[in-house]
Design a protein around this nucleic acid. Sequence first.
RNA 1: GGAAGCGUGGCCGAGUGGUUGAAGGCACUGGUCUUGAAAACCAGCGAUGGGGCAACCUGUCCGUGAGUUCGAAUCUCACCGCUUCCGCCA
Length: 426
Amino acid sequence: MLDPRLLRSDLDNTAKRLARRGYMLDTAAIATLEERRKSIQALTQRYQNERNAGSKAVGQAKARGEDTSDLLAEVAGIGVRLKEAESELETIQAELGSLVMGIPNIPHASVPEGRDERDNVELRRWGEPRTFDFEPRDHVDIGAQLGLMDFEAAAKIAGTRFVVMQGALARLQRALIQFMLDLHTGEHGYRETYVPYVANADSLKGTGQLPKFEAELFALKGEQGYYLIPTAEVPVTNLVRDMILPAESLPRRYVCHTPCFRSEAGSYGKDTRGMIRQHQFEKVELVQIVRPHDSYSALEQLTGHAEAVLQRLELPYRVITLCSGDMGFSAAKTYDLEVWLPSQRKYREISSCSNFEDFQARRLQARWRNPQSGKPELVHTLNGSGLAVGRALVAVLENFQQRDGTVTIPQVLRPYLGGLETIRPE
RNA sequence: GGAAGCGUGGCCGAGUGGUUGAAGGCACUGGUCUUGAAAACCAGCGAUGGGGCAACCUGUCCGUGAGUUCGAAUCUCACCGCUUCCGCCA
């Protein structure tokens, strides 16, 4: 959520900054609503003040043992007008509130101008895509040939966009998770965290998935308003909801492995084959809660932590700065990591690292006590995949495949597979 | 699932329906004292919104939401959460 003060005192400039990401702020509607809000709020407060004073006078008169019937009648009259004003104010504020909740974050000044993914800017590349002396297969064929990846079985159990894996392949996925967790906890200073895979509406509002993106979520039947988490970002970032954190506890760095559930509504034609886009996938997520001053250096650092995973896995990748028009709703700046997929001869997204500045923190009421002011102030939140495990598995299979259909296991994963060097058909 | 109890400021904790934003304590900040520190003593110290160039004025907040009342932390109802006991359970 944006600072509502921006809409009151700096409306046109805010609209201009939002236009960079292709969002057209309806300034006229907001200005009108704001004006009504202001006058009705002033009126409401005047009535409240009169009623309070009147009621206080009643109390004082009663304490002195005086007759209060005249006073009572007078104050009762205020109550009626007050109720009207209050309910009107409530309506306007609800209207304004839902409007504000629907406004995306303002792009940081360093974010390149652009409309969509075509305008994203490549920052750097790492590693050399391998040259094959045979036609590289995609992960679906590799998995089928190994006899360890079964989409039909998954379709029978659940439907499309799910997968069943077995044997060394299932174990490889587990190894990837373990390796990532060990790296981030052991070398990057993150705290391993286990969380619920179900979240309530308040939590999803806090991180920005609700109210705007309910269609992307799996909702659980029942009255509680539960959803399956679309990313560990939701439960982990909500750890600091409604908290005032001591300054010395910042930065906080959390790493968390969870399955992620996404309905992927509106992506029916995309990546229908294989494991790239699934309703359920594993992810290791990095979350940082930092002082506002530090959030942009934290973004560079966090992105580096995600990159380290790819480097250790010896997977070629590039880093992209998302342009203003391609960023997610809550982000102020985002780097995507894209891994090389030989079968597609393309780099494909495997991590997304974002600084949300105070956008999530404001919804979450996540604050810290700034020693300079002594006051609670909003923290900045960041997160990034470190990494999407399903896609990392795809990348390992495709980049390390051999002519004979076997897959060499990256050195760094072998200790997690009991020293296994090659995955062969079972 | 059944029964009982409880949700108050950063933390602990008091609070007969009436000048209560809320006693007291801890923590924190400033000061006195001290060679320095601690202790002691003194003072300050909740959050959040609106209006105003400003001094300042003012609203709201005692788990959440409704209700009763001129007036609610205090009474009623619902919901949420926590604790304890019983039952069930990996």
